[in-house]
Amino acid sequence: MEIIELKAKAAQIRMDLLRMIHGAKAGHTGGSLSNADILTALYYRVMNLDPARPKWEDRDRFIASKGHAVESLWCILADRGFFPKEELETFSQFGTRLIGHPNNKVPGIEMNTGALGHGLAISVGMALASKRDGRGYRVFCLMGDGEQAEGSVWEAAMAGAHYKLDNLVGIIDRNGLQISGSTEEVMGLDPLDEKWAAFGWNVISIDGNDMEQLVDTLEAAPTVPGKPTLIIANTVKAKGISFAENVPHWHHHVPSDEELARALAELSAVLAGYQQEGQVQ
């Protein structure tokens, strides 16, 4: 997809996930909205995937260590054809495969995740396997910024650098908020870039809601031979909904009927603008 198409797709995914959360009366809204651009860039432009062959050995791997923000991922996997879009209506319902965290019974999901701090260690193992098996696939791991308080993240960071895993890309959804408030009030992280660099990673800081920056940075990885890449994607919690952006309680707030209508109206206008721009170009 071209950049304008990716922007339009991200707007559509935001609308889909809001409808899904509203219908289920459950979900993590803020983080799924903040990471929608990151996942759109990965799944529609950057990663080497085949929905018809979800277990293809040379596919790129994606691990959602930030597993609670799964709603955007479910919507994208359905849109890409990993499973029928109608199944989104079962999200968080009794007996569904589409639970509130990634579930590897669903095609396209590599590993059950949700216990924060585990995803990067899994990704290190996958990237090391790729190297030792002579495969060319890359491994992308999306983490939350609140997750950086987990000690296992830093153990995995040390291992990734030690094994020179330049096929490993860590991404931090740096929206500055977690369930109990500001990350800097709960457990200060800054200078986050210097900490990761000290662990031997090549660190790049970008606007994580800017599609051009996302595509340029993600497509360029690996950027330094022999070093894993860490992308600090500075995002806005609940990105795309003016009245919800950077509001802490939208971490897992379910929109009311009125809030859903307002949000969809805003996103519909954004989508229409991208569609018109794309036609002009």
Rank of each mutant, 00 (worst) to 15 (best):
I76L: 07
L128D: 00
I99E: 11
R132H: 07
G119K: 12
E110L: 11
Q93C: 03
N48Q: 13
N104D: 14
P84N: 12
A121C: 02
M126K: 08
L88E: 07
G125V: 02
R80Q: 07
G119H: 12
R59W: 01
F82C: 02
T90D: 14
L120Q: 04
G67V: 14
F94P: 02
Q93Y: 03
G119S: 12
A69R: 00
A78K: 02
L73T: 11
L128M: 08
V46G: 09
F82P: 07
E87W: 14
A52W: 00
V70Q: 03
V46N: 10
R59L: 02
S72G: 04
S92I: 00
V106Y: 01
L73F: 14
A64I: 05
L120R: 00
A115E: 13
W74F: 06
E71V: 00
I99K: 13
S123P: 08
L98W: 05
V46Q: 13
G114S: 15
P54D: 04
W56A: 12
S123N: 13
W74T: 06
I99M: 13
S130Y: 01
P107S: 04
G95I: 00
G119I: 13
E110S: 09
E110Q: 14
E89V: 06
A69Y: 03
S123C: 10
G119V: 10
I99H: 05
P54Q: 05
W56D: 03
H118M: 14
L98C: 02
D58E: 15
D50V: 05
G117Q: 05
K105I: 01
G100M: 10
V70M: 06
I109E: 09
G81Y: 05
F94R: 10
K66C: 10
A127F: 09
E57D: 11
R59C: 02
W74L: 07
G100A: 10
P54G: 08
N104V: 01
A64K: 08
D50Y: 11
D50M: 07
N104I: 06
M126I: 08
V124C: 10
P84E: 09
A52V: 05
N112F: 14
L77P: 06
A69W: 06
E110V: 12
I76H: 02
P84F: 11
R53Y: 09
L116T: 12
Q93T: 15
G114F: 14
K85Q: 12
A115D: 12
N104H: 15
A69V: 09
K131W: 08
A127V: 09
A129Y: 00
I99Y: 01
A115I: 09
G119F: 10
W74I: 11
A121F: 03
A129F: 03
Q93S: 13
I63E: 13
P51R: 00
G67C: 11
D79C: 00
E89M: 10
G125T: 02
K85W: 01
L128Y: 04
E89R: 15
K105H: 07
E86V: 01
P107K: 05
F82N: 05
